[in-house]
């Protein structure tokens, strides 16, 4: 009897202990720990990135005072406005032209930088990356001052050669040029750094083999360098396309969309309409037009990721 009672007690004790430590065991389990460690990240992304992205879609279907559901009313309104189509055109022109020039200049400069002895490369690379390091809002102010209508330092220099002053930001065509120029100035160093890193990873033997086969420098670039750098060129261009498409700082500070809304991009126009014009639903509708390019980029990046996964 006594024996049994004791055993019963001990069994009960063990059970109680297991119930008490179950939580502790669960906490010690790898997947639980991992989940807890990623929880802040998941919460942040869900609450401040994913939710707002969908909330923007909801906002875009409301009327100006956000009291009534209007469906596609905001979009229908946008499609009827000339300014909207001008913004679409300017955004595409701006992003595509700027990215092409950034990629070209970056590629050329990276080649020249790769040519010189590696000891001196550091110094040059340091100087050439400065535009990327300065906060764009600050450096755009310097450009604004360089483009100033009455005291432009560029116009002074051109005046020495007898060239009439250029209305850098006053004329629509020149304003578009200036905005793209500043964006190229700011973004080309990024391409340069990426390409330089990629150039260093191309094995020298390939160039030696090409040289022995009698390839000239153009053929070496076309048949060796470019194929080896294809991945990095694609990914950098894609990135830059997204960032340039969504650009805000440069246009906002340089022209604020003027003259007569000719240089507005989606971002600056959404700000003008949504925050300054207090029509939040319309602003949200405008900014949503940046989503298609994101979707395209996401598709290519995902394809790239899965392809690499298969290779590895």
């Amino acid at each position: 009897m006594v024996d049994v009672a004791v055993r019963q007690g001990s069994v009960r004790g063990v059970r109680r202990a297991s119930a008490g430590t179950r939580l502790r065991y669960a906490l010690r389990r790898k997947s639980t720990v991992a989940f807890l460690m990623t929880l802040p990240l998941i919460v942040l992304i869900a609450v401040l990135v994913i939710y707002p992205a969908f909330y923007a879609i909801h906002l875009a279907t409301l009327n100006k005072s956000m009291t009534r559901f209007v469906g596609f009313g905001n979009f229908q309104f946008l499609f009827k406005r000339d300014t909207f189509w001008m913004v679409v055109e300017q955004s595409c022109l701006f992003a595509i032209t700027a990215v092409i020039f950034k990629a070209l200049i970056g590629f050329i400069v990276a080649h020249f930088a790769h040519n010189i002895p590696s000891k001196k490369q550091r110094k040059w690379r340091g100087m050439l990356l400065v535009p990327w390091v300065i906060p764009p809002a600050m450096s755009t102010l310097a450009w604004l001052w360089l483009f100033d209508p009455s005291y432009s330092a560029f116009n002074y220099t051109l005046g020495l050669f007898g060239i009439a002053p250029i209305p850098w930001l006053g004329d629509a065509g020149w304003a578009r040029f200036s905005v793209i120029l500043v964006n190229v100035w700011y973004g080309a160093p990024f391409f340069m750094i990426m390409y330089l890193a990629a150039l260093k990873s191309v094995p020298d033997q390939l160039y030696e083999a090409a040289a022995i086969d009698g390839a000239n420098w153009w053929q070496r670039i076309w048949y060796v360098t470019l194929p080896m750098m294809r991945n990095i060129i694609a990914i950098t261009t894609l990135f830059s396309l997204i960032v340039t498409f969504a650009n805000f700082d440069i246009v906002r500070i340089l022209t604020a969309g003027g003259p007569v809304d000719q240089t507005h991009l989606f971002a600056t126009w959404a700000f003008r309409v949504g925050i300054e014009g207090r029509d939040i639903p319309l602003g949200a509708s405008v900014s949503l037009f940046m989503a298609p390019i994101l979707a395209i980029a996401a598709y290519f990046i995902l394809r790239d990721v899965t392809k690499r996964g298969n290779e590895a």
């Binding site: 992205a53 923007a56 969504a246």
Partner: peptide, 13 residues
């Protein structure tokens, strides 16, 4: 890849 210029209006609201 989701840019700030897409999120600022809903975040503000």
């Amino acid at each position: 890849l989701i840019p700030d210029s897409l999120l600022f209006i809903p975040l503000f609201k």
